[in-house]
Design a protein around this nucleic acid. Structure first.
Lengths: 182, 182
DNA sequence: CAAGATATGTCAATATGGCTGACATAAATG
DNA sequence: CATTTATGTCAGCCATATTGACATATCTTG
């Protein structure tokens, strides 16, 4: 059984090469540990849903669409493009599948009949809730391991990790607290 | 300027369809907000690096390889496959580029000469540190927004989000505290 | 009303980064 | 020597993303 060549994370001399990276933390202050934890935490977090989605012939892209349509009923296609930051061609494919298979329905906008307002069907609600259940279980386990007051700390940390310049409508709803329009 | 159709996240009736999702939280307890925050936080977090990587003709896959080789010098190819959970064919492509372009070097194992131990070159160190600098800036900004003691809470939360069954060598190093071998 | 802008949809081609299966080589192991 | 292990590679497939071009319906404006 081959011996182990892996050393613990070496306290690197931190050879930040090139001309002092713009706006970067000084040497020795890099958050290697948190960078790494975010990688693993997110990998396992989305892994929960990925596994379940396979049984439906769906991928992560479908989950993201279904999630936001569920959360923000009446979302327009253009809003979804903003939020997901993908092109309409990419969205088109997964959205068509979700529509064809009855997970989402479109309704023509009342004021602007060009718009297609998106809503999750009961079938769609069921799937997205199932996926959220798996992820919630993981989150609850993690929250149980920290100080009760820590939940708000984690929430605040995550919020502060998000770019707030040029927010889309969903981010406005999350942050704005009260500027959901304009 | 078309009116806004997006409502704030509706307190959904939470139609967990189908037979009570196995092991899932009960209705009304789903962590929709944290699920969503994780999506946005991770998107922007990796976005920092993604943008920079473009200039080098690299993608996320290259970053991940470079990161772990940097952090765990002497990592074997097989270890990297475990950590990244991809196939050797997939790894082969990006690893070959990183080797060809001088970001990583291989050294034949001392005990087992079949092994190729991986090390980041100064060029590789410079790139990975530059990327980590960008991400560290974001993390520092987020940490600055929470209680000083909150950093450890966040770290603990992230650690608890990670699967610990069948850990690879990197996770053993992160968690094991002292069982880096076997 | 006619002209232009907007919201959506679709066709075609391409890139990235995963995957499987098959096979080859070198070196360790029994 | 036979087998297993560590690595590499060829060939093809799939999902998801991209760009550019174009079509249609509808709203807005001069």
């Amino acid at each position: 059984m081959a011996d182990i060549n892996v050393q613990r994370p070496a306290a690197q001399p931190d050879s930040r090469g090139a001309e002092a990276t713009p706006g970067a933390a000084r040497a020795g202050e890099l958050r290697w540990d948190i960078i790494e934890l975010l990688f693993f935490a997110y990998r396992d977090f989305v892994g929960d849903a990925d596994h379940e989605l396979e049984a439906f012939g769906f991928g992560r892209a479908h989950h993201r669409v279904l999630h936001f349509v569920h959360r923000y009923p009446g979302l327009k296609v253009a809003d979804l493009l903003d939020v997901l930051r993908i092109t309409k061609q990419s969205l088109g494919r997964v959205l068509k599948q979700l529509l064809d298979e009855g997970y989402i329905i479109q309704k023509t906008g009342n004021n602007d009949r060009r718009q297609r307002l998106l809503y999750a069907t009961p079938k769609g609600e069921a799937l997205v809730a199932k996926l959220a259940g798996l992820q919630t279980d993981r989150i609850n386990r993690a929250i149980a391991s920290i100080d009760p007051a820590g939940t708000e700390t984690v929430r605040q940390f995550l919020r502060a990790m998000i770019d707030r310049d040029d927010p889309d409508k969903v981010l406005e709803a999350i942050f704005g607290g009260g500027k959901p329009g304009k």
